[in-house]
């Protein structure tokens, strides 16, 4: 009984994680300009990886009968590094004057 419940939780988390990662990748392919594409990896992937890792923590905690929490470190490091890398990439693009879609409003450095 317990096994079934755990399996359902793990399966649900894996599916949710995969769905978020997929949507993040679709965003990367589909959004019109560089800065909009940047939103995919900073958000969708954090939760995608988060769900997958949580599934792993559940599964191995149950399998080995203890608490397996080192997966949480992956999430923590990801939350610390994702904004920094996004910031670095965005700044590089800004300095190279990467084109933005014509719908983008407000370019504060122009006035």
């Amino acid at each position: 009984m317990m096994a079934t419940v755990i399996e359902f939780i793990v399966a649900a988390l894996l599916l949710a994680g995969a769905a978020f990662a997929l949507v993040g990748s679709i965003g990367l392919a589909r959004l019109p300009d560089f800065f909009q594409r940047l939103h995919g990896p900073t958000k969708a992937t954090t939760l995608g990886v988060g769900c997958t890792v949580l599934a792993s923590a559940f599964y191995f905690s149950w399998l080995e009968g203890g608490i397996s929490l080192h997966e949480l470190l992956i999430v923590m490091f990801l939350f610390i590094t994702a904004p920094v890398s996004a910031h670095t990439v965005a700044r590089a693009a800004l300095h190279r004057h990467v084109k933005t879609s014509s719908r983008t409003r407000g370019e504060p450095w122009k006035h």
Partner: peptide, 21 residues
């Protein structure tokens, strides 16, 4: 935010209002 991004990415991109703030 992920739920919102989910909807924005899968919806029509013409309806997005990107902006510098």
């Amino acid at each position: 935010a992920n739920m919102v991004a989910f909807r924005l990415i899968l919806g029509p991109t013409r309806k997005l209002h990107p902006a510098w703030i």
